[in-house]
Amino acid sequence: MTTAERPEPLDAFRDDRTYLGADHRRNERRTWIVTGICAATLAALVAGGAATRSMALMASGLHMAAHVAALLVAAAAYALARRHAENPAFSFGTGKIGYLAGFANAVVLAVTAVLIGIESIARLLNPAAVDYHGALPIAAGGLLVNLVCIWLLKPTGVSASRNDPQGDLNLSAAHLHLSADAAVSVLALLAIGAGQWLGLGFADPLAGLLAAFLVAQFAWSLLRKAGAALVDINPSPELTAEVRRRLSDEGERVIDLHLWRLGPGHHAVIAVIAAADPKPVATYRARLAGLAGLSHVTVEVRESGEAHGHHHGHAHD
């Protein structure tokens, strides 16, 4: 026998299918503001690096250029996700557009690391005179701007939620770009200081190589996080275990369970339950009510002795 039912939606689960982060509009505004600040800083760094012939400063400027491009991608992703939030063509909403932008930005970071490394090696092999006195205040100014922007884009609210540690990965990617650029700026300052006061000319291109390594590390971390979300790797073993525990509360068997991320702070679950005395689907859905971060639930119930092709009931929301 096959039956199906659809209970009234529970407050814990959503009907709108958008699955955007709770701070989506706020994060979008902040990203556009920081993009403008960084674009102005980029112009100053590139001009200063060219004028002073500092590789460390040019590395900072080169990374800032990639960083501005990354911020533009992040801001555009916010706008695109918001604009198409109600578009039925997106079966599970537009929450993952930010993860796609984060992955793209990780690639930009990786390419930047390679370019900085190549130029730094060239400067080690063919040293060039550096105007340390002129480069120092420019590098310090670049670091100050980075610190201000890092503060502006600090993840808050659901972006830093315990239930979704990755939170708004689009914002995290932009924040990571800023953090990497700040690290490059610190290295530039140290290298310029070593060259000006200690006469260590090799410190400038060496700082460029260290910067390339740090940026590559940031890129790898972001690639792993964004890639995991895009290919639906289980985002929370803890949440999965809690779902399983609740659904098997009265001796039922959870014979199939899938949990994946839909967007910042939003997860979906599909569960198949086998029970000797199956209860209405609404009963099992009610057991999951109150689980933070669980926004879309599909439950199928089977009698323990049923063939795999039959089900007692199913419902989703």
Rank of each mutant, 00 (worst) to 15 (best):
T2A: 12
S304C: 04
G195H: 01
C38T: 10
H63L: 13
S179D: 07
S304Y: 14
E306V: 02
K225Y: 00
V73T: 10
A174L: 00
H312I: 11
E242D: 13
L239E: 10
K96S: 05
A129E: 13
A56M: 05
R244H: 06
P280K: 00
H266Q: 00
R30F: 14
I33D: 14
D23N: 15
L115S: 09
N87T: 11
L210I: 05
E306W: 12
R253L: 12
V73M: 13
L125P: 00
G61H: 13
T298S: 08
A89K: 05
F218C: 11
A194D: 07
R53A: 15
A22P: 00
E303M: 11
G265W: 04
G313D: 11
A43Y: 13
L176N: 09
W197Y: 15
R287C: 05
G305L: 05
L62P: 04
K279D: 10
V272D: 14
S295C: 04
I138R: 01
A183P: 00
A39H: 11
L247H: 06
R53D: 13
A211C: 05
A182Q: 04
R287L: 12
F202N: 08
T52S: 15
L100S: 06
L239D: 06
V281W: 00
A174S: 15
A203Y: 06
D15C: 08
R83G: 01
T94V: 03
H314A: 06
F92R: 12
